[in-house]
Amino acid sequence: MHLEYKVQGGNFSKAGHASGEIKKVLKQLNVNPMVIKRIVVALYEAEVNIVAHAYEGDIIVDIDDSKVHVVLNDSGPGIPSIERAMEKGYSTASPLVREMGFGAGMGLPNIKKNTDELNIKSVVGVGTTVDFINYL
């Protein structure tokens, strides 16, 4: 099963919308609630990352009977050091974004914690791809 969603950078009022929709689908597919929880945490963090940092992006989800594969593509500033971004508490979020309650530097570490396979590719000035798999 294939799902696609568009995410707009800076649109904080809609942040989490795609994650919510995907959660609804996973519930109907009878995926174990605890597995859904992990996927939704990772997905929400990654979606908010696009909203907080990038100009725009899309989320592509493929589901089969063994796994959920999620790819988040964005065009945006990119991540200069993925290694540093994986550290807890490290954040490049603007003061404005932080004021809204985002940008605590827990995004990528949280995604790592809640996924079975995680692959991040980024080109500075072009964009970032977050690709993760959770097994069912």
């Binding site: 099963m1 609804k24 689908v25 519930k27 109907q28 597919l29 009878n30 995926v31 609630p33 589901i63 089969d64 009977d65 069912l136």
Partner: peptide, 22 residues
């Protein structure tokens, strides 16, 4: 205990098919 009501089928591959039909 959770008693989820939203699943379309117990078997995930069947549930995926039903979801697409739905």
């Amino acid at each position: 205990n959770p008693r989820p009501i939203e699943g379309l089928d117990k078997d995930i591959s069947v549930a995926i098919k039903k979801m697409e039909q739905k």
